[in-house]
Amino acid sequence: MVTSSDTPFEVYVVEDDDAVLKSLGALMEAHGYGATLCRTAEDFLKSFDPARRACLVLDLRLPGMSGMQLQARLAEMGVDIPIVVVTAHGDVPIAVQAMRAGAIDFIEKPTEAERLLEAVAAARATLENRAPPEVPRQVIADRLARLTEREQEVLHHLLHGKLNKEIAAELGISQRTIEVHRARIREKMQARGIADLIRMLG
């Protein structure tokens, strides 16, 4: 059996330059991290495992969905992952926007290995410092029992990665109502977001 302590901290790298992508992946693995390499935001969303301890090294300029759009999508999904933004010099104002939206650091290209490793270490520390203690199974069961039937339906869809608008369409109710249900689920389950719920129920 592989425990969380046996599993390396995962670094997702989203970068459309193949040479840079491979270089950053090799750097992470050389320092004991797991590395998942993605050329696009869409590739990241397909490969992302919210149950893993991880951070995201994110280039802002990507083909298709941009880095900022991916950050917004993750926020909408309730995914709590530390993000380190990598940006070209001319994109610093955009990087500042990303920081205001919750990214923990930004690094200008060309990326210095030591600077990036420091940022990843800080991301890991940030995640571990805010990680909740393990909740006993009986406590989780008691919290689940407090959910209404509709809240349980919404929770089921959330755990399968669906967005508010998708859940609303499926259940035939408004997005605002879904937001209310999400808030009540978080309150009753004592969870800060979908990542906490996945850790409890995964």
Score class of each variant (00 low, 15 high):
Ile104Cys: 11
Pro132Ile: 02
His157Ser: 06
Val135Gly: 05
Glu149Ser: 03
Gln97Phe: 08
Glu134Thr: 14
Leu144Cys: 13
Ala168Ser: 12
Lys165Arg: 07
Thr111Phe: 04
Glu128Gly: 05
Gln97Pro: 11
Ala95Gln: 13
Ile140Cys: 04
His160Leu: 05
Arg115Trp: 03
Glu151Ala: 06
Ala98Ile: 09
Glu134Leu: 05
Arg176Trp: 01
Val154Gln: 01
Thr126Ser: 06
Ser174His: 00
Pro132Arg: 13
Asp142Arg: 14
His157Lys: 10
Leu155Ala: 08
Ile173Cys: 14
Ile167Pro: 04
Ala125Cys: 10
Glu118Phe: 11
Glu112Val: 06
Ile107Asn: 13
Ala122Cys: 09
Leu155His: 00
Asp142Glu: 10
Gly172Phe: 05
Arg186Asn: 11
Pro133Gly: 15
Ala113Thr: 07
Ala98His: 06
Ala125Glu: 14
Lys165His: 06
Ile94Ser: 15
Ser174Lys: 13
Ile107Val: 15
Pro133Ser: 08
Asn129Ala: 02
Ile94Cys: 11
Gln152Val: 14
Ile185His: 06
Leu171Phe: 02
Asp105Arg: 06
Arg150Met: 09
Leu117Thr: 09
Thr111Tyr: 06
Phe106Cys: 14
Leu147Gln: 05
Gly102Phe: 06
Val139Ile: 14
Arg143Met: 05
Asn129Leu: 02
Met99Trp: 02
Glu153Cys: 07
Asn164Phe: 02
Glu112His: 11
Arg186Ser: 03
Gly161Tyr: 01
Glu166Leu: 13
Glu108Ile: 01
Glu153Pro: 03
His160Asp: 14
Gln138Glu: 08
Gly161His: 01
Glu114Lys: 12
Arg143Ile: 03
